[in-house]
Write a protein that binds this DNA or RNA. Sequence first.
RNA 1: GGGCGAAUAGCUCAGCUGGUUAGAGCGCCUGCCUUACACGCAGGAUGUCGGGGGUUCGAAUCCCUCUUCGCCCACCA
Length: 889
Amino acid sequence: MTEPLAAQFDPQAIEGPLYRWWTEQALFHVEPGDPGVPYVIQMPPPNVTAVLHAGHGLNNTVQDVLVRFERMRGRKAVWIPGTDHAGIATQNVVEKLLARQGKTRFDVGRESFVEHAKTFVHETGGQILDQLKALGASCDWERTYYTLSPALSRAVREAFNHLYEKGLIYRGKYIVNWCPRCLTTLSNEEVEKEERDGSLWHFRYPLADGSGDIVVATTRPETILGDTGVAVHPDDPRYRGLIGKQVRLPLLDRLIPILADAAVDPAFGSGAVKITPAHDATDFDIGQRHQLPALDVMNPDATMSDAAPDRYRGLDRFVARKMVVAEFDALGLLVKIDKHRHAVGQCYRCGTIVEPRLSDQWFVKVKPMADRANAAFREGKFRLIPEFHGDVLQRWHENLRDWCISRQLWWGHRIPVWYCGNDACRKTIVAREDPAACPDCGGAITQDEDVLDTWFSSWLVPFSTLGWPDKTADLATFYPSHTLVTAPEILFLWVSRMIMSGLEFMGEVPFHTIYLHGTVRDTQHRKMSKSLGNGIDPVEVIQRYGADALRYTVINGMSVGTDLILDPADLDTSFASGRYFANKLWNIGRFLVGHLEQGAAPLDTIDRDRLALADRWILSRAQDAIDQATQFNERFQLNEATNAIYHFLWSDFADWYLEQIKPRLYGNQEGGDVARAVAAHVFDIALRLLHPVMPFITEALWQRLPNHAPGASIARAPWPVAVGSDRDAAATSDFAALQDIISTIRNLRAEHEVPPGQTVTVAVVNPGATAARVLAAEADTVGRLAKVSALDVGGSAPANAAAVVLADGTSILLPLGDLIDVDKECARLGAEADKLDQLAAAQEAKLGNAQFVERAPAAVVEKEREKLATWRAQALSLRDKRRALGCAD
RNA sequence: GGGCGAAUAGCUCAGCUGGUUAGAGCGCCUGCCUUACACGCAGGAUGUCGGGGGUUCGAAUCCCUCUUCGCCCACCA
């Protein structure tokens, strides 16, 4: 693990070996009996057939950062991975494969189809988990689960039986969402609504007695073939006289009643609604209330069924729609067509327009569970980040409708229900173990053909993955979990249901913090998708730039509640921040490791009196970085935490500290041992702070640092804790003064175009106490970092000098002799003085306001007074400098 | 039709419970291949904080309103 560091950072070379090493050490595996307070994250299981996309990259990076952070903090941290058998999605994939051979699933039959699917999943499934390893995901792979495994299937059965026994699962005939392509029902949550421009057709239905007609409006004319009534509002004066009469349904010559129902909105359309109980949920309800027959006029694939007139049979619903309109038109019964924008439901898997369909399905009664979920929320048992999502979830639970859990698929958990074939018995058997025969009459039984909704297994994940329904040590230790990291898209589909199942089966909410992150989008803020071709392949990014660069970019670019914007057409730029930082870190490490070859004494063996100003300063800054990183991580502001470490490492440590200590390192001068000790100590802190975000580079570099146990991994190194005695306010302000002076000289040099290689002399006139002290101690640093050959402190002002006046009155003068561009310097000084005058004037107005002086806190007023005095003094001093140069007014 | 979120430099975003000369990274301009790093170093420019009201001594920050984007929900057929 400790070959020499490559001159060029090569992520490919380090990542694979390091990940293998981690897993060999079983660093990410925990047992219930391990020490520490548990910290558990359940990974949202990706579909078993999925390949890693940018969304997974973001989601799993966040989880890995959190679990690595808590692991370093000494928690018994475990991240449980798994895959979802993904009923519809997987079945669709396998059907497509069959289609290539010109076959449908019906050609091969159920058993063979399931075998096909199993083989497919076995051979190609789960590759996404390997891709997560490339990302650096520190999952406990020994706990990897699969929602269709025997263990989790047992949990599914137990849950079904439990709910059935409690009366929370029932079978009934209702209008459900039907996907005519997938040939299955969908839950309400699996239907995606999209606003579309459509038409609202108005048709005239003649009254049966010939006394007139009534106009109805519909967006789906083909359903007219299934009409069994017309409804109006009971108080609608236009139609009061028609209630109870009959109309003769055109095209079919069917007599159907006009009835009154309060569900009708008199203001919409014509105020009269055609009622098709078999093809619309509202119509079904109205039909139930008025005992209307339900006439199903469609086949499962949404072609018109035998219940429709001969000429319609077998026609696609949209072809039939056109034909109905045309026929009404031909009869002179098409009144008008209004433009109408309305929401159309689509299958979340294939996008096909969903057809409301009447059928027998299994449902879960969710109201009692939803109520409990909301009660738990009100009691503060769980929270959502960002917070507003909590209200969204609560409102959702208030309006939740029953959950249709049966699917007309072959891929999934078969519904554990059997029906007795004996006509005299007809018993429905719900069982945990497959029964051989009817327990009542011994007759032959057949199992329900349907399978369960995929989410009926994934909603159990927080405990089914830990051995439930058995009372295992895992379950006792690792339930409930802690943080759930996911996208808002599956808040209703998954998160809500896990809360309900956790309360129902375990009596406890399954996690206490739900962190909802944003979505990865392209530069046009469009969601990345296959169809748009605007996706980013994380595997490709890892191969090109390394997992650390990807992770850093993702964490850095995403803040709580915002989306991550990346340009799929320009990966170089999109991942620049991560690439650059990884490279910088590598080079810092390379430089330092080279100088630490001779070892470094542990900091606590160094006599504190020997610490230089820079040493004390960087140690103090390290404590700030520890505080910031820790606090931001705790608040899930991962980007802020990362930003704090970035700034500390790059600006403070590399740009200033390493530059300051170079003479001590290079020359092996007096204090070299101190510099090495401090540098090693501080770099170790920085690496540990950064490890959760950039696990590979930090490990590679940390392995080369002295003073940690051989064979140890940074992944298990303790998270840094701020040390009060390393805080040094005096060093902080002194070093800030030093930086100010150096920056000022550099600025003056640049302004006056002093060649970079040329050294200069600098006079410091009227130095403040801090400036004097710092310059006495760090003249050499100023000399090196600002290329100053002679520094005259406390003398008189040289002639022909460019000048800056610091806030404490210290004047920095850069004598330029004949080279000075007097006009330029006069202009510069003048502009500077004018700016200060403006500030001072505004400040005077503020302080002249009696209200302000009276009402603002004394400390604020005092602070403002000091500012005014400073600006005035600076301006005055600058004007002196102008006079000395002989500037014109 | 309801509800929610966002609007701050060219871009992506920080600015928590009101008091900073409004910040960062990228991009841009100038100069440097200074033996860790040109994926670098040093210096620099850039914003009436979406518009309009209000509260306050004081608002990017709190309230109202408008505008524009985005998201979620919805059995007006």
